[in-house]
């Protein structure tokens, strides 16, 4: 299935990646090959699809779920240790020139 540049732009918007016109053109051929590869499954298995079975194929019994017991949260400094925090918050400056 061929993919249009417009479709690539829509996907890029969903994926929050920037694909300008040139990159779209460059990418569309390669992406087309990958889609064709994925399409092999459609060549093999046609027809309707039933419900998706669970991913791990395993279940957990309700009784084995986590009990509602509070655990101590982490120190604010730790939570923010990978950013330059601003008053205890995760900050993002809205515009940076």
């Amino acid at each position: 299935m061929a993919i249009t540049e417009k479709e690539i732009k829509t996907l890029a918007r969903l994926a929050r990646l920037d694909f300008d016109d040139e990159r779209c053109r460059e990418f569309s051929g390669e992406f087309g090959e990958i889609i064709a590869f994925a399409d092999r499954i459609n060549a093999q298995v046609g027809g309707a699809t039933s419900d998706i079975r669970e991913v791990g194929g395993r279940e957990i019994a309700y009784g084995d779920l986590r009990d509602d017991e509070v655990k101590e949260s982490l120190l604010n400094e730790k939570v923010l240790s990978n950013v330059q925090s601003e008053g205890g918050f995760f900050p993002v400056r809205r515009v940076v020139k």
């Binding site: 601003e86 008053g87 995760f90 900050p91 400056r93 809205r94």
Partner: peptide, 12 residues
């Protein structure tokens, strides 16, 4: 989210 002083500040 809190918006102030040119920042978007996030509290989780």
């Amino acid at each position: 989210l809190v918006h102030e002083r040119g920042f978007t500040l996030i509290d989780y």
